[in-house]
Design a protein around this nucleic acid. Sequence first.
RNA 1: GGGCGGUUAGCUCAGCUGGUUAGAGCAUCUGACUUACAUUCAGAAGGUCGAGGGUUCGAUCCCUUCACCGCCCACCA
Length: 877
Amino acid sequence: MELPPRYNFNDVEDKWCKDWEEKNLFHAQANPQKKSYTIVIPPPNVTGILHMGHALNNTLQDIIIRYKRMQGLETLWMPGTDHAGIATQNVVEKQLAKEGKSRQDVGREEFLKRLWEWKNQYGDTIIHQLKKLGSSCDWERTRFTMDEPYSAAVKHAFVSLYKKGLIYQGQYIINWCPRCQTALSDEEAEHQDTQGSLYHIRYPFKDDPKKFVTVATTRPETMLGDTAVAVNPKDKRYKKLIGKTLILPILKREIKIISDEFVDPKFGTGAVKVTPAHDPNDFAMGKRHNLEFINIMYPDARLNKNAGPFAELDRFTARSKVIETLKDSNLLEKMEQHSHAVGHCYRCDTVVEPYLSKQWFVKMAPLAKPAIAAVKKGKIKFTPARWTNVYLNWMENIRDWCISRQIWWGHRIPVWYCSHCPEGKNIIVSETTPNECPHCHSKKLKQDEDVLDTWFSSWLWPFATLGWPQKNKDLEYFYPTASLFTASEIIFFWVARMIMAGYEFMGDLPFSDVYIHGTVRDAQGRKMSKSLGNALDPLEIIKEYGADALRFSLIINSGQDLFISKEKFEIGRNFANKIWNASRLILMNTAIENKAIDLSKDIAYDKLDLPSQWIISRFYSTLSNVEKAVENYRFSEAENLVYEFFWHNFCDWYLEISKNNFTDPVVQKITFAILKQSAQMMHPFMPFVTEELWTHLKSGEETIAQSAWPKVHKKLIHSAIESEMQTLTELIAAIRNTRAAWNVKPHEEVECHLTSSAKKDIDLLRDNGNILKSLAKIKTLHVDSHLTKPADSAAGIVGKIKFFIPLGSFIDLAKEKQRILSQIQEQTKMSEGLTGRLKNKNFLKKAPAEVVGKEKARLASIQTRITELKEAIKNLG
RNA sequence: GGGCGGUUAGCUCAGCUGGUUAGAGCAUCUGACUUACAUUCAGAAGGUCGAGGGUUCGAUCCCUUCACCGCCCACCA
């Protein structure tokens, strides 16, 4: 076999990427003969470039998809990208800015043209990168949230919700990003703790300007929009003042003191300035008390004419000017340090402004109902389970969803206004562009300028990608999907909304399992980000270590949040190399004609020697445990299992033993069959190296990706065999250990005497003498049930087996004595502890008989061991 | 302010219904060019399982208090 000693992953991975795609291997089709297993990819943003989070997310999906595919299910992994409204628009705006232009300069139509150009040029980047990872998506189906059919689905969803009265338009305070100049949903405003100041400002009374009420605020510039001061009706300090008139400083506007339960008497001064147009609470108070709503800002957060002397200033400049002015007129009582959470735009990190504007909203409570019930009933399960509460908590307190965005990249809201009909009656909501007003037949219609929140399209992803609202076979066959893999940040944005959409539009859940994986961080625990410069580029890792290594290393570290540094990828690279070289050894030494070996039929298991029985048993018990682990989403455990089996059972022991017997056709068969099935077992985790090996292991034309997952033969799993072999390996380890302690050169062969009081052991040792001799480098081996310790020999014990290695000139009696003495000490300590426990009446009464029995046996063996050790010391003289 | 998670070897983490001597990888140290692999092999050392209290015959595991770290949610100006 002409395999090179160093596994060349770059070439191999490129080759199979191409091959799989050319064969369109992962294309799924409705097939009533089989059960379906569907995953929809969390669509990365078209602007996205592959980062470690994607790598982890997609590896997880690929593992389970490949696993289920091999298990014979019709697996569909639906890929695609999200148009990512604001994010993408920002990218192209930056491009324009380099030419010194704004989007307004070029106009909507031209700007959209630019966006599409950008999308067509760069939008597939991340798709290509996902392929390099080995993702076995159905690439033929790749979707984009702004594809024509998908857009139709979005419109359909909007219109259908509108018809049910679940979508409404209204003037409310929303989160406004002054840089993006658009509304944001509550989820899109990220709260960051900020050290700010709490300003205490004096508002003088109209009828006694020397007296005043002091209010506290963190945003003093908003005072220019104040239309009242509120106090708690129960607050004794202010009770008498309710209804009095104050003079708003600077603008000299007369405002009233009102009372409202909302006010917390304990915070600040107990008196709150009320700015109904710039604060959500004040907005509510404004409605309750019929206050005036004064908007003091332009959409870019400069102050407008209503701000009087501060008009045209930026909000933060205005803030300091206001403070200065108040100081000058002695109306600033004090400034306190105050830390509070300030909302920031999740796309550009600008401080968001609570801003009064007309927006579209979705009424969420009715949608949440079935989505809550589904999770409570366990129809949808979160893994890890603790996310269930996070989800339920949010859903039970859900607020209406602001879905309109004042940007241009996205699905335009399917609403038209008739310029002839009166306000309020002029709205036309339609899936298709209307020609005329249905009421007055006017043709003067104008479409709503806004587009929909990106998430208003992605919440339809599990079914809109399958052709909804059209009814078709695919939708019927592949929906509901099976599992969804995502990070916790996305639960509210996407997962919760998909569940609601699933029930609302499909009448059924979108998926039954939600797997929430950890965040990938750097070695210091910081999030990976470009600006910090700590981001490891998965593509670089793929180049340097291989995609299999990237995948394997990420997953084996993925118990919770991952702390990743470059060296962590060595484990995967080394393992791939190990697999490669073990295969070389086997392929170089075996001549297998019929490559389809069924270990349960083609081998006389009962006649095999211990190591062969053992490796077969180990393989099937590992396989069975891997299945359990994957089914329960315990991926890192699954990888640990295959790693342990392949490296430390198969390579370290079985292959080492078999090396000497490779001429035996039975050993060849077994070795080959185990390698072949191991490759299959490891394929979901390391698709490339296993696919490459498969070309040498398979009998037909199929790829390993399409091959059938090996069947667990329970009859070939024997714990007795596994424990016998364990005795043997422990004995070998103990002999090696003793040799090392005495500085016996590794290749120097020694004499060894073995004995045991159990006949079983004697048989075991006699049957496997060759193995002992070769692996423990023993020249002459003496096995005897009655044996006295040879002079000048080092001794050791494994279970009931004692071994002696005559060391002649090597031996240092004092040192050996010391060794044995410390062993005696250790054993005595243990036996004392055990004796104490076995004398405890409560223990004997309450502990299960099984445990008591085990402890008794343990004590007995420790005691014999102690006497033996003592004897050994006597023999030393 | 509410909620959740974490604290186990120098580092990163397993330890899945409480029960032998708490495991692995990396790093460290000793030794080995053994013809599959030095991305290797053979060994060693390293832990009062964050602290206190409780439940139990028995606690890394259950309860409780505390400390520190992290995350999420939140309209206290």
